[in-house]
């Protein structure tokens, strides 16, 4: 079970709801992944888009999953705080995936604005899921500010490059044993997800890799299996890699050898 601010979940896969080829593909992907938490955003209402927007929201509500609203697209702490307040009213949850973009090419989160916005939101009772770079000192500041969940990126959003900095991700895991750690963004293949889980990460947040797959529901299931396998491997205790070979077959009793017994 994975713990997010005192609520526990069986599934360690959090799924984004964007970029699917159809609403049906989204619904089936959520079902086959077993995801119990999905991310959503707030966007400008328009007369033209109102009907489609309403249909989307009805579909998500019908999935019966927990909603994690985001502040995607915000470029300042002020915008992010305002968006979080708006999300709390619409979705009725203190949870917020806090995203403050600092660079438009890489969509890299702005660590300074992220800490500022986190402090403001925690003071208002929000439970913050910060989308962050894998920086250890930033992580310290966010935990000091009240975060019990951290969501370092694997790679820039939508790139599918996997875990760009496994060393730093391992360090975070070792440094924050009691914090729920989620790799968010940049995951492209189930093997990336399994690698993060083997490191001891608590969960994965995915979107593009599932939504833009040839068959999103099948890919959602593949990710769920990889996440389960990676988690089980972590719990089972992985062997330490070594440089030199060690025979796995017993050497005692080996035939034709003058050295064997």
């Amino acid at each position: 079970m994975v713990d997010f601010y005192g609520r526990t979940f069986e599934s360690r896969l959090l799924l984004g709801t964007a970029r699917y080829p159809s609403p049906e593909a989204l619904g089936q992907a959520v079902a086959r992944s077993g995801a119990q938490i999905v991310t959503v955003s707030l966007r400008r209402e328009s007369a033209a888009g109102a009907k489609a927007g309403q249909a989307f929201w009805e579909l998500v509500k019908a999935l019966g999953v927990t909603i994690l609203p985001n502040t995607a697209g915000c470029h300042s702490a002020r915008e992010a705080v305002t968006t979080a307040r708006m999300a709390r009213e619409v979705f009725g949850t203190p949870w917020i995936k806090l995203e403050v973009i600092g660079d438009d090419v890489t969509l890299q989160p702005d660590p300074f604005a992220l800490v500022d916005a986190t402090r403001a939101l925690v003071a208002e009772g929000f439970e913050v899921f910060p989308y962050m770079t894998e920086d250890l000192v930033l992580a310290e500041k966010l935990v000091e500010a009240g975060c019990r969940v951290l969501m370092p990126w694997g790679a820039p959003i939508g790139t599918g490059r996997g875990l760009n900095n496994p060393y730093a991700l391992r360090l975070l895991r070792r440094h924050f044993p009691g914090i729920t750690l989620v790799v968010d963004a940049g995951i492209g293949a189930p093997s990336h997800a399994a690698a993060a889980m083997e490191m001891g990460y608590d969960a994965l947040l995915l979107n593009t890799a599932v939504a833009t797959a040839g068959n999103p529901p099948a890919m959602a299931e593949a990710f769920a299996e990889a996440i389960r396998a990676g988690r089980r491997a972590h719990e089972a205790g992985l062997m330490e890699p070594t440089d030199l070979a060690t025979a796995s077959t017993p050497t005692f009793g080996a035939p034709f050898s003058p050295f064997a017994g």
Binding site: A18, L26, V40, S41, L42, R43, A50, G53, M86, L205
Partner: peptide
């Protein structure tokens, strides 16, 4: 004035 509603998000 901003008027926002739920939408797809990652």
């Amino acid at each position: 004035v901003e008027v926002l509603r739920p939408m797809q998000g990652g």
